[in-house]
Amino acid sequence: MGLIAQIAALRDGTGRPQALVGELRRTTLLVPVSDGGLMSAERGGVRWLYAFTDEVSLSRFLLQRGADPAAEAEYVAILGARLLDAVIPSLDGPTGVAVNVADEDGSMLFPPVAGIVPDSVAVDLVGKGARGER
């Protein structure tokens, strides 16, 4: 079952969170690049990296943000596991992943908590022996 199917299963109550995170880790994600860095937004003290499962979802997002439809989207393709285990720990502050945010029924947020990101950067482990704060 692919990531989109895992998201749908979790939303309809038949999915398992561990299976969803496992599928995220196995999926190659497209992360848009802006001004030389990974495109993200900050909300509620958390930085959210935008990630997409395909070019159609990425394009829909960019168009909603006012991008030129004729312009070629700049992005990096990265395995979800690498995004979670290597990229997020290298960034300052709590960082999660926002998948397919322009797709109302297919979007999902993966917050910076234990079981998703490494324990050393999981916000729910602050003060419990993990680094937590960056």
Rank of each mutant, 00 (worst) to 15 (best):
M1C: 07
M1T: 06
M1S: 11
I4F: 05
A5Y: 00
I7W: 00
A8S: 07
A9L: 08
A9W: 00
A9C: 04
D12A: 05
G13D: 04
T14G: 07
T14M: 02
G15M: 07
R16V: 11
R16A: 14
P17H: 11
P17E: 10
Q18D: 15
Q18P: 06
A19W: 04
A19P: 02
L20I: 00
G22F: 04
E23H: 04
L24P: 00
L24C: 02
L24M: 09
R26K: 15
R26E: 15
T27Y: 05
T27E: 05
L30I: 02
L30Q: 05
V33L: 12
V33S: 03
S34I: 03
S34W: 10
D35E: 15
G36E: 05
G36T: 05
G37R: 14
G37H: 10
G37C: 07
M39A: 12
M39G: 04
S40C: 04
A41K: 15
R43G: 03
R43N: 12
G44S: 10
G44K: 13
G45A: 08
G45V: 13
V46R: 07
V46C: 12
V46E: 09
L49K: 00
Y50R: 07
F52C: 00
F52R: 00
F52M: 03
F52A: 02
T53S: 08
T53A: 05
V56Q: 10
V56A: 14
S57E: 10
L58P: 00
S59A: 15
R60D: 10
F61K: 01
F61H: 10
L63F: 13
Q64F: 08
R65F: 12
R65A: 15
A67M: 14
A67R: 08
P69G: 10
A70P: 01
A73R: 07
Y75D: 01
V76N: 04
A77T: 03
L79H: 07
L79C: 07
A81M: 08
R82P: 07
L83Q: 04
L84H: 08
D85I: 05
A86V: 15
A86I: 10
A86H: 13
I88L: 09
P89H: 09
S90W: 06
L91M: 13
G93T: 10
P94D: 13
P94C: 11
P94Y: 12
T95M: 07
T95I: 09
G96E: 03
V97C: 01
V97R: 00
A98D: 06
V99K: 00
N100Y: 00
A102E: 02
G106R: 01
M108W: 02
L109A: 12
F110H: 01
P112Y: 02
V113M: 12
A114C: 11
G115T: 11
G115E: 06
I116S: 06
V117W: 03
V117Y: 01
D119C: 04
S120I: 14
S120L: 14
V121I: 13
A122D: 11
V123I: 15
L125N: 11
L125A: 07
L125W: 09
V126C: 12
V126R: 15
G127W: 11
G127R: 14
G127P: 14
K128H: 14
A130H: 12
R131A: 15
G132F: 06
G132T: 07
